[in-house]
Simulated assay, not measured.
Amino acid sequence: MIEETKITRNYQITIPATIRKKLGLKVGDTLIVKLEGDRIILEPKRRSITEIRIRLGRKVDWRYVEETIREVIEKG
């Protein structure tokens, strides 16, 4: 996916809506900025499982989540 954006006078950019939606970015999320050669790479900072647990509280069966993650990792 390729999108275009402009740099404002304050050196800010807007992340296009299609990309925000695809990555699930929300106001207040943190991005990691990397420089690779002459390319600027933006990546969402992923939350730790502990942060996610606190945020979701008891709404999730964590045993199921952790079991599913283990299965995916094992299948590689």
Rank of each mutant, 00 (worst) to 15 (best):
V33D: 00
T5R: 05
R58E: 12
I54M: 05
P16T: 01
I54D: 13
G37F: 00
I19N: 02
E66S: 04
K22F: 00
L35W: 01
L31K: 06
R53P: 06
D61Q: 02
N10D: 15
P44E: 11
I69M: 13
V27C: 04
L35H: 05
R55F: 13
K75Y: 09
K22Q: 12
I41Y: 14
Y11Q: 13
L35G: 11
D38R: 14
R46N: 10
E51V: 04
I19F: 08
T8G: 08
T30C: 00
K26D: 02
D61H: 05
T30H: 05
V65T: 01
T5H: 12
E4Q: 14
P16A: 05
P16F: 03
T14Y: 07
G76I: 13
L31D: 01
K26G: 04
E66N: 08
T8M: 03
G37H: 02
R63D: 13
D29L: 01
T50Q: 14
R47E: 15
I32S: 02
E3Q: 12
T14P: 03
P44C: 05
R58Y: 08
E74H: 12
L25K: 05
D29I: 01
E36M: 04
L23A: 08
V65E: 00
S48N: 14
L35F: 02
G37V: 01
I32P: 01
K75D: 11
K59D: 01
V60R: 07
T50C: 06
S48E: 11
V60P: 01
E74Y: 03
V33G: 00
I49C: 06
